[in-house]
Each structure stands twice: as structure tokens, then as C-alpha cells.
Write a protein that binds this DNA or RNA. Structure first.
Lengths: 218, 218, 218, 218
DNA sequence: CTGTAACCGAGACGGTACGTCCTGTCTTCTA
DNA sequence: TAGAAGACAGGACGTACCGTCTCGGTTACAG
């Protein structure tokens, strides 16, 4: 989380408990107050820690919140459900479950909004949150290829672009459903979404130029 | 924007020019400073207006920013490109163009983040921004149905759910691409995304229970 | 009180009732709020009058309060009590009675304090409040001279100086007793004060160089 | 001025230099602007101090001005001039000299006016300004009694009342001369005033019931 | 077992912005 | 043309946080 560069510097070492307490207090405050009303002084008080201690470890509110929220994504795992369809549903549901928590909603969107004007913050978010999720998409594809549900990629660059695209679609849809539409991304919704995504993925590769055939739905 | 109730109340009427100046100043400040560093005092100064005038018309920063950003969406139109595929690409591109503007990025995401803890703000966003966009999805579907590209909906409730889903997918993908991945939603990306969406929409309705057939890509 | 320049200007004449209502409202507000918390907007509301009307007639808070307080001194009269001693007591008691009223305390001292930095205000106070009181001292001396209690003045300039001195002593003592010591200037106090003043006045003229004889008091 | 209670509390101690700078800046602002136009923000700026520092130590403008003005009275000393007459003149002159300073004029009268509606403020003024002066009256009487110019008091309660009366007369006269009449309390005026006071004090005790003898002046 | 270096809590500090209130001016409608 | 109503520019208010600093005290490793 922070630099620990050399070996074991002289002097009193930093309290490890403080880190835990601060991040927990941050999430608690996010739930109660939301990002914009969260103050570092209040977080310090909740954590039973001096404001100085907090500033010694994080540069500011944004960095602190990124770390606090990032811990929520530690539990994200890709379950092996046997089919690509089930895997997609599984990972989307997990992502939706995390975004259903108020500390994630409040914290994540706000720091993303802040990151628009702050390159370092954007990088921190990417490293500690986004990449962790994107790994799941990669794992899922590899597994589907092993099963024969998806063909092995021919052009690796094109394949990377597709992963990015899928990730934006999945994460974006869940985020928009949860935050903007403010409706729960429940099982039914996830199933509908996964259908569209699956058909999009498996159908979109067939023919790049032919118009798609007319269909009954939606 | 504000009450317009009776006919022509007593006392000096509110300056219409002030509204315009304030909203423009707000967008300008959003571009330069971003949401979190935007100050109502600064906006007032830029607009050549007293702080009180600003507070007389808006309850706070969030309400002001929503109105300022909402004006950006006034220009959103659905072009009639002849085919569903082209229409989808067209509207996604337009939405992407708006989200490419820094005042939209900074403003929109921040107020959405704030709206998580503020029902009234969420409603204001829905009314002045979201609904305006969702109308385009409805228009596009009606047009596609006229052309015969999409069948008329049988269950109107199911149809409404589908519109919401599509909207979350489209808007979410563009938002995520633009803000989180911080890559431009350019023509190439939009074409790829529209392909997936089109196949998803036209293919997903075919058979609700059968597994999709294996495909080549990606 | 204010300009009334020519004869009877064209257009709607100023409401005379408004003046009365405004001054009464000013005194009422002085009692309830004191000078520093009194606002012209509040006075206008109490008087059932628009702020504009108020500003059309008075230049500001200070001028308004001077006029409002000056009306309190209209009732000041010098009773003919038969002896100089009784006359002094009588006028001091009257002055004390006015200063016992909270609107006088609050208003008078504040405008005097303001007048330190405002020549025009000082002149207005002198004209509408101070001179009115000083007249009583002049009357009292004339009456005492007629009775033979005081000798006629030889040097008119010296006499004027003495009147000023007496006035400062009398008014100053009552003001200080009432405001700074915050004790009532009741009959007992006035009697003690009048004794000192009377002996001072009648004894001080006797011998300008000789040291006063030792005495029993105070 | 503020609490000094325990030994050396935790945390960064308050800057002593700040107190000095703030009070000096307050007097400076009083001279330039007067009480009503004096701003706490401006005082803070002049003192090179943050507004918060100022509010941490004083409850408001009035308390601050009392303390700033009170320091002016620190220099007040009773000179031993040998006779009661000379002592009176000396102390009155000193008091007049302080009241001649614009910061005293502006500040003192305004806070006294405010104190009418604020018991705590009145007490603060009494403690830090009035009592300090009243001590001089006590010293002066004791000295005169040692010299035999005044008899020792028989009734201590009556004696206290007399001290209060004298103080109101002396302070009130100087204040009224300086502020209301707006004339300097110069040596000549002080001599005339001291004469009256001296005769009043030494003569008033002689006979409580007899009418004073007719005299030549004023 | 003793420096000493880095930590810790507490809280004052110089700042910035807040949202409210009041001032004195103006603009409109009504009488 | 006066008056009521109320919007306007401007500016001070007192509060809340920010991020920094200066204290007295406490660990825990190094000599």
C-alpha cells in the first residue's frame, strides 16, 4: 500500500493495527456520510488515531478511499460453473454484489470522478481495482477456450481489445444499472444481460460484413 | 428550472440573463477545476453575479451542476440512418461525443456519485438527463419495428424492461470506456460495440432455453 | 427632520404616518435587539413599510436612531421647585428617568460612539438631543440668579464655559452611573450627587487660589 | 485573559505572540475604522493570523475590543502630588489622556453600549477596566486621609457608596466632555472640574440638612 | 541498558470555502 | 410620483475542514 523500501528502518515501526482501523473507519464513514461529507478528521477520530498518523500514510482523501474500497474487491473470485454462460452470470453477479454495498457505491464512483483530473489517482485505481477484475475476464476466456466454447485467438492484439471491450460492457452495465438507474442488479437482470452478452460475443464473430438476420426479439 | 407559478408577481423579476451566465460559468469552472474544486463563490464571480443570486435559485452545488450538465444533452438527436445498425452506431457516437467533453465527465459522474445518498438529486438527474436519453432508445426501436428489423413487442412490460436494459448497457459501456478505462470511445470502438449489441439483441430473442451455438470469435 | 424643500411637490405626497410608524418601530427594535442587532430591513417590516421608503427618508441606521431617540427627550421639562437645590435634583431625576429606558440606553450610547468618527452625525446629535438638554441648565441658572441663589455672571464667555462644564458633569455622571456602573440613578443617588454638585458650584467660586478648608466627609 | 488552568496541556501550545499581535492590530483597526467598521477578518489579516485563531481565543468582537482597550489602562498610575487637589487633577488628567486616544474613544463607548444587553460583557468590562480605575480613587482617599485632608470614614458601607459616586462623577464628566461635547479635557478644563469636585467633596460633608450658603459664582 | 530515531496523541496554526445575513440600490407593478 | 415588493451586487459573519506544525511521550532497534 505504501513504500516500505529498505529493510527495517530504525525507530519505532508503524502500527499495523492503525492501517486496518483506518481503512475500516473509512468504509464506515463512507456508508454513513458518503464521499463528499467524509472528512479525514472524522475518519481519524473513528479509528482512534491522530490526524497526523493518517496523513503520514495517505496523501489525501482520494488515495485513502481507493485503498479502503479496493479491499472490497479482494473477495472477487471466478467460480468454475462449467459453461461460459454460467461463468459470465457468476462473475457479473459477484461484481453486482460488491456494487450493492453502499461504501462501494459512494466511494468508487466518487474517486473515479476525481480521477478524471488526476492521472496518478487513475493509475492507482487501475492498479488496485480495475486490473484485479480484468483478470477474471481473461481467466474466463481461457477456460472457455479449453472447453471449446470459444476458439483460440488468432490476433493477440485484437484479442486484448476485445477483452477491454467486454470488460467495459460488463462493468459499465452493472455500474449504470446500480448507480444511475438505481435498480438492483438482481439474478433476473443478470440473466437477461448475460443472454445479450453471450449472443453478442458468439454471434458477432461470425461474419463481419453481412447484415444480421431479422429476429423476433426483443 | 424554477417555479414559474402565477402570472407576473410583484417586485423585481429575476434576471433571465443571470441563469444563462451562471450555467455557462459552471461549465467553464467544471472544465478548469473539476467538480470537487469548483466553488459556488468562484462560479458567481465568473458569472458576474452575487453569491446570493446563485443560492436564491439553486439549493447547492449538486443541483447547479446537474442543470449545467443537462444543457449539454439538449443537442442529443437521433439521426435516421436507415438501418438499426447504423442508428445504434449513430446514437452511441453522439452520446460518446458529449461524454468526451471534460465538463460532462467531471460533472456527470460526480453528481451521480452524490445522488447515491440523495433521492431528490437522483430524481433531478433522472428527469433532466436520463429520461431525455432514454427517449432516443424508444424512438430507435419504434423506427426499427416500422422497418421490420425488429418485431412488434408482445408483452409491453417485458418491452419496457428490455429498453432499460439496453439503455444501461449502452450508456454504461460508453461511460466505463470513457471514464474508467479513460480511452476514447471513437468510431472503431463504437463499431465493435455496436456489433456485439446488435447480435445480442437480434440473437438473444431466438430461443430462451437453448444454449447458443459455438462460434469462431473472439 | 428631513428635507421638505419647496412647497408641495407634484405626485403622491409622502405618508406622514410612515414617519411615526418607522420611529416607533425603531425604538421597539432597539428595546428588543439593541443597536448592533437592529437592522433596517427589520425596522421596515415592523413599521409595515418598504425598505425603500425608509432609505428615502434617512441616510442610514445612525441617523434613524438619532431621530428615534431624540423624540424621547421631547418630554424633558424643567420644573420650578423653588430652590436651586431642588431644581438640580429635579432635572437630574428627569434625565435619569429617560436614560433608564432601554431604547435610550441602547440607542444613545451607540450613536454617540459612532459619532466619534462622523462629524455630521455628531452635529445631528448635538442639535436634536444635546442642545435641548443644555437649555435646561441655562434656564435653571437664570432662575437661580433671579432668586439670588447665584450671582449674575460677569464674564459671559466664562459663564458659557461653566454651563458646558456643569452639563458635562451632570449628564456624564448620570450616564456613567446608568450604563457603566449599571446601577439605577434613583432618588437617593440623585440626592447625594446633587449635594456634591451644589457645594461644588456655590463653593468653587469663593476663592480661586486658597486651598479648601479641611472637612469631615466624605 | 484566557484560561491558564492546569500545567502544560497536551498538543501544541497557543502562540503568545499571536495574542499580542491581535490586540495591537485591534487597536490599530479601531483607530482607522472605528468599532462599527472593524472586522474580525481584517484584524486577523493585520495581525498576520488566521481568523480561526482569533475565534479560538475570543468569543466575538466585543470581548476582543474590551481586552484591546483594557491594555490601554495598564499605564494608569496615581501620582503622589502632595495634596488632594493635585492628586485629583493628576488622575483626571491621566484618565483624560487615555480617553483622548481614538482607539479608546471608539472602542470603549461602543462596548459599553453593547454591554447594556450583555451581562457577561458588562462583567468583563467591570473586571478589566472599571475596577482598575476605581482602585485609584481608593488609593487617593487613603492618602488624603493619612495627610489629614479627609477624615477617616466612620460607616464603611457609606464610604463605599461615596467612592462609587465620585468615580461616576469623575469618569462620567471626562467621558461626556470628550465624547459627547467632543472637546478636549485639557489642563484648564481639568482644573475647573477639579475645583468643583474638591469643594463638593469637602463641603458636602459639613452639614447634611442646612442649605448651602449663597455664593458669588459661577 | 542506553541512546536515539521514528513513531504516536493532541491540538494550535494559516488558510479556503461554506451558506447566511444585512446593506444600500435597482427595477417592476400598483394606486 | 410614492409606495410595496423583492431581486440585485457586495461584503462580513461565524463554522468546518484542510493539511501543516509543534508539542510531550512512547516504542524498539542499535550500539
Amino acid at each position: 500500500m505504501q513504500s516500505r523500501t529498505p529493510a527495517s528502518r530504525a525507530g519505532r515501526p508503524r502500527s499495523a493495527a492503525a492501517d486496518t482501523a483506518i481503512l475500516a473507519a473509512t468504509r464506515e464513514a463512507l456508508v454513513e456520510l458518503g464521499w463528499s461529507k467524509l472528512t479525514l478528521g472524522d475518519v481519524a477520530t473513528r479509528a482512534g488515531v491522530a490526524k497526523t498518523t493518517l496523513y503520514r500514510r495517505w496523501a489525501g482523501k482520494n488515495e485513502l478511499v481507493v485503498d479502503a474500497v479496493a479491499e472490497l474487491f479482494d473477495e472477487l473470485r471466478l467460480p468454475d460453473c462449467g459453461t461460459l454462460a454460467a461463468d459470465i452470470e457468476g462473475v457479473v453477479l459477484q461484481y453486482a454484489a460488491i456494487l450493492a454495498r453502499p461504501e462501494a457505491k459512494s466511494g468508487l464512483m466518487s474517486v473515479v470522478a476525481e480521477s478524471i483530473r488526476d492521472e496518478a489517482l487513475r493509475e492507482r485505481i487501475r492498479a488496485s481495482i480495475v486490473e484485479r477484475q480484468k483478470r477474471l475476464v481473461l481467466e474466463g476466456r481461457a477456460r472457455a477456450q479449453q472447453r471449446g466454447e470459444l476458439p483460440p485467438e488468432s490476433d493477440p492484439e485484437e484479442a486484448a481489445r476485445t477483452v477491454d471491450l467486454i470488460f467495459d460492457v460488463v462493468a459499465g452495465a452493472v455500474v449504470h444499472r446500480t448507480l444511475v438507474s438505481a435498480e438492483p442488479a438482481d439474478e433476473e437482470w443478470v440473466r437477461s444481460f448475460a443472454r445479450i452478452l453471450l449472443f453478442g460475443l458468439t454471434g458477432a464473430g461470425e461474419d463481419h460484413d453481412a447484415a444480421p438476420p431479422p429476429a423476433e426479439g426483443p
